[in-house]
Design a protein around this nucleic acid. Structure first.
Lengths: 203, 203
DNA sequence: GTCGAAAAACAAACCCAGTCCAATTTTCTG
DNA sequence: CAGAAAATTGGACTGGGTTTGTTTTTCGAC
């Protein structure tokens, strides 16, 4: 079985997986995250409850499955020789702001983020996804900065990045023009890394 | 009814409240947070399940009830005229490291923190407590730095502070001498605020 | 002390997320 | 087509958290 060949099995699974997530998101947007039960989602997606849980192990993962898939530690360890870790992270987010994020379907993105921001449980879950990233980033940074500084810098970077993402999404949800919001995001990335590198005094 | 007069009612409630938390912490330390049920805790504390939940609305709150009670936003708004917000925060944590934290009962502190660190659910809950602090700190900082910078700086500060607290507690749990750990904490506070103020380049 | 009101504690039924398992159906492979 | 492997299913179960109506305890006034 060649990987990527995608037999009927794989295709149907992928299809079901997407259908479930879409149905769930629609329900969460209509009512509220807390007000929708897993049983309702299973019914609406026409799968059994057990199957639903086999695709998405938690209710939160229905919304956050592909969030936080990024790997900051890898960005650092795979950076070109001669560049600093912070320069590599800065470049990573600059590219992200210019490309992938700007090209997302605006409607869907706004819906999803509206749901996340409206639910304390989801916000908290998104938050703890980043928490694990932090630990791995700290390990990757330790070589360059030493363990002590690395721990703090990793915390600063992940927190700052979360904040500017929130700001970006908040603008979108509030109805800002996507292009302008994208520019704002790029500016925020610059500011955030300037702050980390040179501090409040120097930025 | 004068506040602080503490009639029998209040005293008994306070007593029950403490007994419940102590019993719960002991059970969590013996086994694991996830392995202890609320029913067991109620039985061991000799109250009904309903009463248990009326004292502590969630399982996490049994451990985290008095964590995160600090108010960083107030530290900033109540700072002496002429000082910067960051100087005020730095001073607040310097004093904390020198005084209150150093004087906690070591045994109890270590037990509690061992429980928190051993449980992903508790770590995540502690994390989201700080998340709310962040938003209020950002609002307090906005006057001085503008909204954009304030949001990022607030994120950096809260994340950095959490990190150095974790480092301190980790040292304690690992059996470090409390006095030495306290000195390490004070050093970390200095480093963290140096990083925020002057950046990686300048610290 | 006693009475009535307020507060606290209680038991029991209930909801929902998440787990487990054994039985069944669907897909793949030879 | 046969049989193995994977996916789906129903259903029972655990445990956190809520709700409701009842009983017990405390309190303040007399």
């Amino acid at each position: 079985m060649v990987s990527g060949m995608a037999g009927l099995r794989e295709r149907k699974k992928e299809q079901t997986r997407r259908r479930i997530a879409e149905v769930a998101l629609r329900l969460f947007a209509e009512r509220d995250f807390a007000a929708v039960t897993m049983t309702e989602i299973a019914d609406a997606a026409e799968v059994s409850r057990a199957t639903l849980f086999s695709y998405y192990p938690t209710k939160e993962s229905l919304v956050l499955a592909d969030v936080g898939a990024e790997d900051l530690a890898a960005v650092v360890t795979a950076r070109p020789a001669g560049s600093t870790p912070l320069a590599a992270l800065r470049g990573y987010y600059r590219d992200l702001a210019a490309g992938p994020i700007a090209e997302l379907d605006r409607e869907a993105t706004v819906t999803r983020l509206g749901v996340i921001f409206a639910s304390p449980a989801l916000s908290a879950a998104a938050n703890s996804l980043l928490y694990r990233q932090r630990e791995r980033l700290a390990a990757a940074l330790a070589e360059e900065y030493g363990e002590r500084v690395a721990a703090i810098v990793a915390a600063e970077v992940t927190a700052a990045v979360l904040t500017i993402q929130e700001r970006y999404f908040r603008r979108l949800v509030d109805g800002a023009d996507p292009v302008a919001a994208g520019r704002g995001l790029a500016d925020d990335v610059t500011l955030a890394f300037d702050l980390v590198e040179r501090g409040v005094a120097g930025a």
